[in-house]
Every structure is written in structure tokens, then in C-alpha cells.
């Protein structure tokens, strides 16, 4: 009888734990609440199945446990029942899969107005690169990495000269704008993960991976590395701050471009206003939207 009780308790306890315990996901900060919804659907369907199976088992043990003189029924199979169960299972699986694939197709289709930014990982820190006035990131190659060019931006590529580099410091993003995050690593696998954004993707040395999201609220978020990358892995933290438009532009104004960093003696004249350069790219669209809504 203890078994029956324990089986019932496991179901009840698990369900109560699910609803009452303080451990739950972090408040979301990106557009990927779709993913959260899919998880909720999954919890419902799987939770019901779990409870049903375990409670059924508990009932069987309660009802059919051995007593003197008992004899089991003889039933090799029951085709109808088995087919029914299969159909119901298939339906449940479909109910999980279809919304999942639907959201996945959103996840992999980057909207055309998303701004590209680049995250570069190395043991054990994060750096970032934002496109300059031209709105384009210059090409890059691990072979170009030197002490003066730690991200390996191609020195000859004109598109890369005005790129804004944020080396081992915090990244800022404007709220409400879709970003396509290009991911690159110059040594081992890493994974750019911010729990509040829900999204993550590995970075692979030698190739560029990506994902996209739209930050939906301002705040400071911690970047975690989610792919084992050596002994510094658990300390490979970074910070992403989602700012309002003004704060973002102010921050951007203080950053330096690739050209400035690689040739600091000339920086005074040629590219004196990198912040404005970016504003033209990330900011203008939003500004025009803002002004439109203000009218």
C-alpha cells in the first residue's frame, strides 16, 4: 500500500511543485514569448500524460495487488485499444510539434529590417562589433587576428573601417529594434546566451552563426557562455544593456571605430563622429518612426 500512496504523492507533489515553487523562468525581455508559450503547451500535454500514467499505475497496484487465491486475467493483446492509444499519442505529439515548428520557422527567418551586430567570443571574454555609417560589417578572418586587431577584422576591407568595436566591455542595444546577432569565435566553441532573451546559439571558430531577436524592455542583462569552453567557462560573463534610444545614442557616441583603434594617431580628423555614423544606421529609422507617431 505504501507504493500506491507514494505514486499518488509523486503526482500530487510534482504538480504542486510545478505551480507553487519559486523556481521559474526569468521575466522575458525579448520577442520570444512564442517560445514560452510553446513550453507552456508542452508542460500541459506532458503533465497530463505523466499524471495519467502514474495514477493509472497506482490504481492497478491498489486494485490488483496479490492476494491469496488471486489469478491474473489472460489477455495477450487488444488491437483496438493499442491502435487507439497510438492515435491519441500521435495527436498529442502533433500538438506539440506543429506549434514548435511554426515558431522555429520564425526563429530562423530574420526580418529584413534587423540590424546586424557581431559578437566575438574568445577564451574567456566577449567583444562586440557594430556596423558603421555604411551599415555593413567588414569581413573578418581568424588569421587576421593580431595584438592590434584582436577581432580579426580584415584590414583591407573598406566596409570594416568604420565598424565600431567594443572590446571586452558591455554591449548596448536600443529597445524595440530587431537585431541579427552574428556569432563568431576565434578559439573554441562558445555559446552566446542571455536567459532573459531565451535565444542562444553556438559560436564556431571558422564560421559565422546567427540568431535574431528584438529586445522589448530596457534593463541590464547578463550574458552567459553556454558551451563548455575550457576552465574559464563558468566565469565567462558579459553584459548587455538595453537602452532607450537616447541613452543608446549617447553610449554609441563614446565608442571607437576600427580605423581609430588601428591608427590612433589619425583619429582626430577623419572619423571624428563615429556616434553619428551609427545613428544614421540604427537610429534614423527609429527616429523617423518616433517622429511619425508624434505627428
Amino acid at each position: 500500500m505504501a507504493v500506491v500512496l507514494v505514486l499518488v504523492l509523486i503526482v500530487v507533489g510534482s504538480v504542486l511543485f510545478h505551480f507553487l515553487s519559486p523556481w521559474w523562468w526569468t521575466p522575458i525581455a525579448s520577442n520570444w514569448d512564442y517560445i514560452d508559450h510553446t513550453i507552456i503547451i508542452s508542460f500541459w500535454i506532458t503533465g497530463i500524460v505523466f499524471a495519467a500514467v502514474v495514477l493509472f499505475m497506482a490504481y492497478c497496484v491498489f486494485r490488483f495487488r496479490h492476494r491469496e487465491g488471486n489469478r491474473a486475467a489472460y489477455e495477450p493483446e487488444n488491437k483496438r485499444l493499442e491502435w487507439w492509444l497510438m492515435v491519441v499519442t500521435a495527436a498529442g505529439v502533433t500538438a506539440l510539434l506543429v506549434p514548435g515548428l511554426f515558431v522555429w520557422s520564425r526563429f530562423v527567418t530574420v526580418p529584413s529590417d534587423a540590424t546586424e551586430i557581431e559578437v566575438v567570443a574568445q577564451q574567456w571574454q566577449w567583444s562586440f562589433r557594430l556596423p558603421g555609417k555604411d551599415g555593413k560589417l567588414g569581413t573578418s578572418d581568424t588569421r587576421d587576428v593580431t595584438a592590434d586587431n584582436p577581432l580579426g577584422v580584415a584590414p583591407k576591407d573598406p566596409n570594416g573601417q568604420d565598424d565600431v568595436l567594443v572590446e571586452a566591455a558591455d554591449l548596448h542595444l536600443p529597445v524595440g529594434k530587431p537585431v541579427k546577432v552574428l556569432l563568431r569565435s576565434i578559439d573554441v566553441l562558445h555559446d552566446f546566451y542571455i536567459p532573459e532573451f531565451r535565444a542562444k546559439m553556438d559560436m564556431i571558430p571558422g564560421s559565422v552563426t546567427y540568431f535574431w531577436f528584438t529586445p522589448i524592455r530596457t534593463g541590464t542583462f547578463q550574458v552567459l557562455c553556454a558551451e563548455l569552453c575550457g576552465q574559464g567557462h563558468p566565469l565567462m560573463h558579459g553584459v548587455v544593456m538595453v537602452d532607450t534610444e537616447q541613452d543608446y545614442l549617447a553610449w554609441l557616441g563614446q565608442q571607437q571605430t576600427f580605423a581609430q583603434l588601428s591608427a590612433p594617431q589619425q583619429s582626430g580628423s577623419a572619423n571624428s563622429l563615429p556616434g553619428e555614423a551609427i545613428a544614421s544606421n540604427l537610429g534614423v529609422a527609429a527616429n523617423s518612426k518616433l517622429s511619425r507617431s508624434a505627428q
Binding site: W25, I35, T38, I39, T46, V54, G100, R198, A226
Partner: peptide, 27 residues
């Protein structure tokens, strides 16, 4: 075994369902 296997198998449906795996993988 049935209890734990059903439990673990069902969470497998989370991780197999590609988009749900995105936030949960490597956690």
C-alpha cells in the same frame, strides 16, 4: 522505472521540439 522513464521521456519531448530546445539546451 516506469515513473522515472515516463518523466524523463516526456521532458525529452521538450528538448526534441527544436524551438523549445533553444532556451533549454545546455542548461
Amino acid at each position: 522505472f516506469i515513473v522515472t522513464f515516463v518523466n524523463g521521456g516526456l521532458t525529452g519531448l521538450f528538448l526534441g521540439n527544436v524551438v523549445v530546445d533553444v532556451p533549454l539546451s545546455d542548461t
